Measured scan of single mutants.
Amino acid sequence: MAASAHGSVWGPLRLGIPGLCCRRPPLGLYARMRRLPGPEVSGRSVAAASGPGAWGTDHYCLELLRKRDYEGYLCSLLLPAESRSSVFALRAFNVELAQVKDSVSEKTIGLMRMQFWKKTVEDIYCDNPPHQPVAIELWKAVKRHNLTKRWLMKIVDEREKNLDDKAYRNIKELENYAENTQSSLLYLTLEILGIKDLHADHAASHIGKAQGIVTCLRATPYHGSRRKVFLPMDICMLHGVSQEDFLRRNQDKNVRDVIYDIASQAHLHLKHARSFHKTVPVKAFPAFLQTVSLEDFLKKIQRVDFDIFHPSLQQKNTLLPLYLYIQSWRKTY
């Protein structure tokens, strides 16, 4: 089996927390979720979201995140109150960019949308954001926290390059993509939290790379249903696996070995980020709550012996909000 052949990389499970039942964490995340308004986002309300009498641009960002990046939404709820709305805006910006690729039928249209967001970032730093909910909220975040323009532009530029429907040539190319998107998002989150620390940035770099790799793995069944495969070609070739094997949902050992190798790289990034947690300011830990969902996925895929098409991998963990709150309460990542 794939797991038994390579099992030495995987460390002990961390979500089991001995003695936790003896201490009762304060009510927090679930209460916040219940208090949030929840009407559906419609095209009509989106168009009017920044106008008078609408929910408001902040509510639009929150709803977009809740629907399109639920794990990011849950993590954002546990940030300090003064930072929450800015991170909602930042993550909503990322969602807007991420959904361009799947929402257009022609690359030219995707490039036009990316050009809109490039100009939007430029206009935000000229205090002239367009009348668009996410743009307005992002402008507020930039003004409030003096966010670095370079990180925002890196996210747009990398998403634009990724409009080509090509597999990553190697794991390094996937890591570079993750660094310029997910890690950049974390650098900006640290700025919102008021953290300027080399060790925190180092952790953000590795956690962002782990996030990018896990996202690529999780999306494999969806991409396969659209006749697309984006997994690193070098690892596929190493194990003699073709793109057609993934399109046919082949579950042979060599296919699972490909998934094992890729998942192991995410695991190593996560492990390395945690190896120097004592040197990272505690104030930075809330920015890294996504490690909970990353670890949850890596454990699940290990349990199914790296069968990327196993139905259990597509099921939401209903206990994730609780695990996130516990992680926040324990002040760790």
Rank of each mutant, 00 (worst) to 15 (best):
S45K: 04
V46F: 15
A48P: 06
G51V: 08
P52K: 11
P52M: 10
G53W: 12
W55G: 15
T57G: 13
T57N: 15
H59C: 11
Y60W: 08
Y60F: 06
L64D: 04
L64G: 03
L65N: 09
R66F: 06
R68F: 14
R68Q: 07
Y70F: 11
Y70V: 07
G72P: 03
L74D: 00
C75S: 10
L77C: 04
L77D: 02
L78Y: 06
L79E: 02
P80S: 10
A81F: 12
S83Y: 10
S85N: 11
S86T: 05
S86A: 14
S86D: 09
V87G: 10
F88A: 15
A89F: 00
A89S: 07
L90I: 14
R91C: 03
R91T: 01
A92M: 07
A92G: 08
F93D: 03
F93C: 02
V95Q: 05
E96R: 05
L97D: 00
A98V: 09
Q99R: 10
K101C: 14
S105C: 14
E106Q: 10
E106I: 09
K107Q: 14
I109Y: 06
M112L: 11
R113G: 07
K118A: 09
K118S: 07
T120C: 14
T120W: 09
Y125I: 03
Y125K: 02
Y125S: 03
Y125N: 04
D127P: 03
N128I: 13
N128F: 12
P130C: 08
P130A: 11
H131W: 11
Q132A: 12
Q132N: 12
V134N: 03
E137Y: 03
L138Y: 00
L138T: 03
W139F: 11
W139H: 14
W139Y: 14
V142A: 08
H145I: 03
L147T: 00
R150T: 07
W151A: 05
L152R: 01
M153E: 09
K154T: 06
K154D: 06
R159K: 05
E160S: 14
N162A: 11
L163P: 06
D164P: 15
D165M: 10
K166Y: 15
K166C: 15
A167W: 15
Y168F: 13
R169K: 11
N170K: 06
E173N: 06
E175R: 03
E175M: 03
N176E: 13
A178W: 02
A178D: 00
E179M: 03
T181F: 01
Q182S: 14
L186Y: 11
Y187T: 01
L188K: 00
E191L: 03
E191M: 04
E191F: 01
G194Q: 07
G194P: 00
G194T: 02
L198Q: 07
H199V: 06
H199E: 07
H199P: 05
S205K: 04
S205Y: 05
H206K: 03
G208F: 02
A210F: 00
Q211S: 15
G212P: 01
G212S: 04
G212T: 03
I213T: 02
I213C: 05
C216Y: 04
R218N: 05
A219K: 05
T220A: 15
H223S: 12
S225C: 10
R226M: 14
R226G: 11
R226C: 11
R227W: 14
V229F: 10
V229A: 13
F230M: 14
F230Q: 10
L231V: 12
P232T: 05
M233Y: 06
C236K: 01
L238Q: 13
L238F: 09
V241S: 04
Q243D: 04
Q243P: 04
E244N: 12
E244A: 04
E244V: 05
F246A: 04
R248Q: 08
R248I: 09
R248E: 04
R249L: 11
Q251P: 12
R256V: 03
R256W: 01
V258R: 02
Y260C: 06
D261E: 10
A263T: 07
S264E: 06
Q265Y: 12
H267M: 10
H267E: 07
L268R: 10
H269N: 05
H269V: 01
K271P: 01
H272F: 13
R274Y: 04
F276S: 07
H277Y: 08
T279W: 11
V280R: 00
V280Q: 00
P281A: 05
P281M: 02
K283L: 13
A284Q: 00
A284I: 02
A284F: 01
F285R: 11
P286K: 06
A287K: 00
A287P: 01
V292M: 11
L294W: 00
D296E: 11
F297C: 05
F297M: 06
K300A: 13
I301Y: 01
Q302L: 06
V304T: 08
F306I: 00
D307I: 03
I308Y: 00
I308S: 02
P311V: 07
S312K: 12
S312I: 10
N317V: 05
L320H: 05
P321H: 02
Y325I: 15
Y325P: 01
I326P: 00
Q327I: 05
Q327D: 03
W329L: 11
R330M: 14
R330Y: 07
